[in-house]
Design a protein around this nucleic acid. Structure first.
Length: 825
DNA sequence: GGAACTGACGTTTTT
DNA sequence: CGTCAGTTCC
């Protein structure tokens, strides 16, 4: 590690920006620009050190975002780069928005010209769209959400005859996600790991999944980075273009980057010749691999900002190591520590610091504040979670009476199931609240249905979308029909909608189903053609109307139907801000989170994870119990590392508070509907007594008098190892058993022979080409061939029109069928 | 082909 | 306790 800058450990030699900043101005060599005024020396150093790699270790509340935005302002005003030459990545959409907002204030209007400010995923997606053809996609590719992903995997499992019960699709999804987070393509997954799923078929399924994605012209979240990396590695010229474009790279929340993100950044931040990828077969160096090849090249002007004490996404593949190892990856890196906290009062900061000091693997920072000591952190015990909610409700009402805004109050939870209790309570109290990060707007069924229609219009190869709406609203196209489409589509290797178009012209289906399928396909054609002539919002309305989708909900008498119609309107409204359908669809899956009723004064309820980066005057932290916080599963799966991450999460929670941090634990909590007795969290024991006040629950009617439970309880919790028998929370660990796998069971899908899977036939690229292929291919039949059909029996081919055959059947008479449904005999 | 019922199973955090 | 998948019945 680079030697930390020597700083007096006590208070700063007060850099006083106040008093008009005149003094500061005089001290600087040149008149400092507006954006430099008000920065402390370390912050200013971080802003002004433009050349070479910089790591800013920014503790909670030390002005991280301020540094990032000021740095961008500085780069621009020094004329070192144009807005489009700065790559600035954040972790969440919220953070990206915040930066745009603050930049806007700092610079005036000019922010719109920062095209490369966004999340890892949105920028990765953007790069992929530009270069889609190089990774076997087209620029209108679909980004699949988790739901689509699972459905697709289920289909693959079924095709391999793998029991979905024993090997759940979501488990495979988790594995694949993990591999992608680590930057591993199917051929790079260690065979031992690939074998743990489905009796050794895990790797094969991953490869098949990637193949299917290409056919569907789709990418999942992981692909937005992984495919980008592949693009860079396979096309050095493209990479070089981006390397030259991005004169400056800024990274927010660097402690939460995973291996894929790290590789992505590393590729972009190198100068010099093409990356030293050895040709085919090379395995990406693992993040902590020895002798990384970076050292030989000059790193660019990259500035990463992060806080190892706030790394809370390890479960999702984040590597704290990335930040711990920064100066090894980027030789000559300058490390700047921001340790002055501008957010919290003394007691709060002391409590948080003391707690996090229990972690062993950290770089170590000492946060200081010049703020008043303020109120002590409180710890309150309750009998059960209901009383906990009651107590918090009352305290909030009290705060409100004292003149606090509800907007300045937040409840931060470990797990989202804790929300219900508070919602229930607040509803009865009539206390306005707002749930942040709950179920997303676009995850609602009606929204996804509507989107599916638009997706099919935009990308006809999107089978998942097609399947979703082919019978919504009900139009008599049930499982049998879908199965038939699938059969045909697979045999011809064409999308479902294409198969549908072909089958409609034949006698394969019953007249009724055939009619409605034909109508549907005609509708799609019409919508697609109108796309050029009418506005995309109007198109959406037309589609919802003509498809009968709106009508379906209008007829629905259930209570939430009205809300769903409202949501659909909202969806159309939200399309306004996008230029066209394509632009809208690109963003919907990545950016759209519901910002419910923004301006109202309301208490915020959210998980600790989604609270990162936010701050509130008053923060309530319920549920500090063993098993919940720290979460049992983090302990079971990750051991000490898991515990430390939980502790960081606790640290994040406390440091969200400006004036008041209030912790709670309940002795009894309902988990699945059954009550469990719990022990207070060990984290409570780790708080410094001097800064904490232990109170009793004032939670209403007669509870918590001169009690036996509550405060004294958590004083003598034995720490590590002695947790009780740990009931519940049992792990579903299915992969223990599994007999001999009888060799490679050959399946319908192609396994990739070459390590770099693209040796197989390139999938069709654009719609036109695709259609041409399916209809232009010579039929495998010739006139007079004797054939057999499942439904119509034996017959002879009497006419051939592409893949459509007219056959004289012995029993059924003359019929039109698609060739894939008959076998030559 | 579709609706309604039943049983089983699993529930941390998110781009 | 909730969703989901599978079954049964129309």
């Amino acid at each position: 590690m680079t030697e930390p800058r020597k700083l007096p450990n006590n208070d700063l030699p007060a850099y006083q920006p106040a008093a008009g900043g005149i003094g500061a101005r005089a001290r600087a060599q040149a008149a400092p620009a507006q954006y430099l005024i008000g920065l402390n020396p370390e912050q200013r150093d971080a802003v002004e050190t433009l050349d070479g790699p910089v790591l800013v270790l920014a503790g909670a509340g030390t002005g991280k975002t301020k540094v990032l935005t000021s740095r961008i302002a500085h780069i621009l005003s020094m004329g070192r780069a144009r807005p489009a030459e700065i790559l600035s990545v954040t972790f969440t959409n919220k953070a990206a928005r915040e930066m745009k907002h603050r930049l806007g204030i700092m610079l005036g209007q000019a922010v719109e010209g920062m095209p490369w400010l966004g999340t890892f995923h949105s920028i990765g997606g953007r790069i992929l769209r530009i270069n889609a053809e190089l990774v076997q996609l087209t620029s209108n590719f679909t980004v699949l959400d988790v739901d689509d992903q699972i459905r697709l995997l289920k289909q693959l499992l079924a095709a391999e005859n793998i029991d979905d019960k024993r090997w759940p699709a979501r488990m495979l999804a988790g594995l694949i996600d993990g591999w992608k987070n680590r930057g591993l393509t199917p051929s790079q997954v260690p065979s031992g790991e690939a074998a743990v799923f489905g009796n050794g078929k895990g790797g094969k399924l991953y490869a098949a999944y990637q193949d299917r994605l290409k056919t569907l012209n789709a990418a999942d979240f992981g692909d937005l980075l992984l495919e980008c990396i592949r693009l860079f590695r396979e096309h050095p010229d493209v990479l070089r273009g981006y390397q030259q474009r991005f004169k400056f790279i800024l990274v927010d929340e660097y402690q939460d980057t995973n291996v894929a993100q790290y590789l992505w950044l590393r590729l972009l931040s190198q100068t010099g010749s093409a990356p030293s990828t050895s040709p085919a077969g090379e395995v990406l160096p693992r993040a902590r691999g020895e002798g990384t090849e970076v050292t030989s090249r000059t790193p660019r002007n990259i500035c990463c900002v992060g806080d190892d004490d706030q790394s809370i996404y390890g479960w999702r593949g984040a590597e704290v190591d990335n930040i711990l190892r920064f100066d090894h990856d980027f030789p000559g890196a300058k490390v700047i520590r921001l340790e002055r906290n501008y957010r919290s009062t003394g007691h709060i900061l002391a409590a948080a610091s003391h707690l996090i000091a229990h972690n062993e693997s950290r770089l170590g920072k000492t946060l200081r504040t010049e703020d008043v000591a303020g109120e002590k952190v409180t710890v309150t015990g309750s009998w059960d979670s209901e009383e906990e909610a009651r107590a918090i409700g009352e305290e909030i009402e009290q705060l409100q009476r004292d003149g606090n805004k509800l907007n300045d109050i937040a409840i931060l939870l470990r797990a989202s199931f804790q929300m219900r209790e508070f919602e229930d309570r607040f509803v009865t109290l009539g206390l306005p609240y707002r749930v942040i990060g709950g179920p997303r707007f676009y995850e609602r069924a009606e929204i996804r249905d509507a989107l599916a229609y638009l997706r099919v219009i935009n990308s006809p190869a999107d089978d998942l979308a097609f399947e979703r709406i082919v019978n919504v609203p009900k139009r008599g196209l049930g499982d049998a029909t879908v199965q038939m489409l699938h059969d045909h589509a697979r045999r011809r290797k064409i999308p479902l909608s294409e198969a549908a178009r072909a089958i409609v012209d034949t006698d394969e289906m019953k007249p009724k189903a055939r009619g409605s399928l034909r109508d549907l396909m005609l509708n799609f054609e019409r919508w697609r053609s109108r796309r050029e002539t009418i506005k995309h919002t109007e198109l959406a309305e037309v589609v919802l109307d003509e498809s009968g989708y709106t009508e379906m909900w209008q007829k629905d008498k259930s209570a939430d139907a009205a809300g769903r119609l409202e949501n659909l309107k909202e969806l159309v409204r939200s399309m306004e801000e996008f230029e066209n359908l394509q632009g809208f669809l690109e963003h919907i899956s990545l950016v759209m989170d519901r910002e419910g009723g923004a301006d109202e004064d309301a208490v915020s309820i959210m998980t600790l994870h989604s609270a990162k980066g936010l701050e509130f005057d008053n923060v309530f932290l319920p549920g500090w119990e063993e098993g919940l916080f720290p979460h049992q599963r983090a302990l079971d799966d990750q051991g000490r590392a898991g515990l430390e991450e939980e502790r960081r999460l606790a640290h994040v929670g406390i440091t969200r508070a400006r004036k008041r941090a209030k912790l709670y634990f309940a002795t009894n909590r309902r988990i699945h509907g059954t009550w469990n007795t719990t022990m207070p969290s060990r984290f409570l024991d780790e708080l410094p007594a001097d800064h904490v006040e232990i109170t009793e629950s004032k939670g209403g009617s007669g509870w918590g008098g001169a009690s036996g439970y509550g405060p004294s309880r958590f004083d003598n919790v034995e720490s590590f190892g002695s947790t009780y028998s740990t009931p519940g929370w049992q792990r579903a660990q299915a992969n223990r058993r599994g007999g001999s796998n009888g060799g490679q069971a050959g399946g319908g899908f192609n396994d990739s022979q070459s390590p770099f899977a693209s040796a197989r036939a390139k999938p069709m690229t654009i719609e036109g080409e695709l259609i041409a292929k399916s209809t232009g291919t010579e039929s495998a039949f010739t006139l007079q061939d004797r054939v057999f059909h499942q439904k119509f029996g034996y017959g002879a081919v009497i006419k051939i029109d592409g893949n459509k055959l007219t056959i004289a059947f012995e029993k059924a008479g003359e019929k039109k069928v698609v060739d894939s449904f008959v076998d030559r005999v």
